[in-house]
Design a protein around this nucleic acid. Structure first.
Lengths: 334, 334
DNA sequence: CTCAAAAGTGGGATCGGTTCCAATTACAAC
DNA sequence: GTTGTAATTGGAACCGATCCCACTTTTGAG
């Protein structure tokens, strides 16, 4: 493999000139540029990224930490981030903490990124522990958070206004005439689940309704956990005509299990999802859900991380608004 | 940040000794080891990965090329690969060619990985073009392919026996008494889609049935394309009691659209999926499908890539067998 | 106790870039 | 033609590891 020196020699210039030509930092005469260009072509030269990183002290690597890769949610984030980074010729390295059993494990996953000397880190988290993780990290300054609002990280938190999302959900179900509503939330220790929950219940009460605590079920959201949760929920014999689910995965699962028990959606029961993940439009029936602009949020976070890390000036926005997306899993109470 | 030299000085040993201690290549006396260990702790030393890579000429980076990140299929691969690589302290960098418009674009995406000097590349492809891409690459030797069999790459191709999968599908539907069967396949220029298709039709004819060409519909598999495909398919007014779908995404979509048109699954029509992706068990009704061990295949490919690249000796296997997974989207013909 | 083989060691050369600096050249204004 | 400023240049120093080599120490067999 050819090196800068080879190129410099062939082009009859100094190695510094070649470097300047390639990086675009500093001026190079057009005569020299032409000779260098020719030499690069002739030698089929490609800069060595390790050498470049060592010497310039930037790896051009962005670490992405996610708590899980099961289901569509985090995948949508990965997809958006990969695309955005590729646009700027940065590379993503990924750490999935799904198999972590403890905070120490989660830190290991974090270190897996840090040890790679990535220039910045994007954490998609909502669990309390993850934020603490970020806080104590030495990489604090080039860190950006998805799905968490924290004063200490003002300007680096990207989030969807889930409280609003909860309100939209409450209004939709109320507008349809539903009063006996059950709620399946994610872990309320997670900020985003909490906000949806709070927004929903507050709006419900503002609308003159009240949901007894026994109608609110809390649980985790992996497919397996959600399956258990939904089963347990239906066995509780709660009297409801509509269910507000903490995410689309749970909504889909719930519909499946309701069908299984001979209950038809939306004829007998309305089911409202949350997130509007990729498959939400294609279930049977297609999910009415709260559309969360996950993709745009991820892109924004990514752009701001690039700004912070590489002193760029890309446009971004921290807060995103969800919107109601009506399909066919909810219907007016007959 | 502390360097080897700092550690060496503090420990009162040479830098080579520190390096040997850390990498485990070469012997270090227990006395020296102890001093080094102490110094590392005291200085909070962490090796610089770029310097290490430059000097050792290995980046410990594995490139993963996928044609798309839409839907669960490739995500399952990403998830498996990330986990397997992390286990061996390698890092994944990802290139998603979803936005590629041409072969040149796809090559750009490939170069995006190569330019990063990754040590090995795993390509998950089935399209013809991708294989050509791999063939002409200078990284040929440390390349492993998912979902493609090619003689030129014997020992580096990891695949599921889709012909068998097609046969299993044919037998299942035939056993249930279905004769009027429609088929929705992926692009037949892709090897894996072709194999499913061929296996299915061949087995059907072995079983004494025949499917007219007009009952076989070919199309692409993005959600949007699949939606159009399914709509067009249903508008064709084919007479069928069962449909064999090229993947679960299409099966889910088809069920949704059938419901929409007042046709119930499996009462009126049986729908058979393929792949057994993560959500297949949770649709309404849960999908009967051909389980493809995607996860294990990806892990195997990854392990063999590690073997080739880092001279390891991890167990692997090239061929995987699909199996029938009966849930509730198919039923006996009444 | 001797001596050869093995184990352990220090430090310099090296990997392939970037970046700084002093020196040179180009150019415009007068 | 002179001068001052800006553009351009070559090359050395450096980034922080690995790894080789020559050397010293330890080990154990006889």
């Amino acid at each position: 493999m050819a090196t800068v020196k080879d190129v410099a020699k062939l082009a009859g210039v100094g190695s510094g000139t070649v470097s300047r030509y390639i990086s675009g930092n500093g001026s190079v005469s057009s005569k020299a540029a032409e000779k260098i260009e020719r030499a690069i072509k002739q030698l089929n030269y490609r800069p060595n990224s390790m050498a470049r990183s060592l010497s310039s002290r930037r790896s051009d690597l962005i670490g992405v930490w996610v708590p899980s890769l099961e289901g569509p949610y985090y995948h949508m984030i990965i997809r958006a981030v990969e695309q955005e980074l590729r646009l700027h010729n940065k590379h993503m390295i990924l750490a999935n903490a799904e198999d972590a059993q403890s905070d120490a494990d989660r830190r290991d996953h974090f270190d897996y990124l840090v040890n790679r000397d990535c220039d910045g880190i994007l954490m998609s988290c909502s669990l309390q522990g993850t934020f603490e993780l970020a806080r104590t990290s030495e990489h604090f300054s080039n860190l950006v958070l998805l799905n968490h609002q924290a004063d200490a990280l003002a300007g680096r938190c990207f989030y969807i206004d889930h409280e609003l999302g909860g309100r939209l959900a409450a209004r939709h179900l109320t507008n349809l005439g539903h009063e006996k509503i059950a709620v399946i939330t994610g872990r309320l220790s997670a900020q985003d689940a909490r906000q949806r929950h709070d927004g929903f219940l507050d709006e419900i009460s503002k609308l003159g309704n009240a949901i007894p605590e026994s109608c609110v079920v809390e649980g985790a959201f992996s497919y397996a956990a959600a399956e258990r949760l939904v089963g347990a929920f239906l066995d509780m014999d709660i009297d409801f005509t509509a269910v507000f689910c903490g995410n689309d995965k749970v909504a889909m699962l719930l519909i499946s299990e309701l069908n299984n028990r001979g209950i038809s959606v939306p004829r007998d029961v309305s089911v409202l999802g949350y997130d509007d993940v990729d498959f939400a439009a294609y279930t049977a029936p297609p999910l009415t859900t709260i559309h969360a602009p996950i993709d745009e949020m991820a892109r924004s976070a990514c752009r701001q991380l690039l700004n912070l890390t590489y002193d760029m000036d890309l446009p971004f926005q921290e807060r995103f608004e969800p919107s109601l997306c009506v399909r066919r899993s909810t219907a007016a109470l007959s």
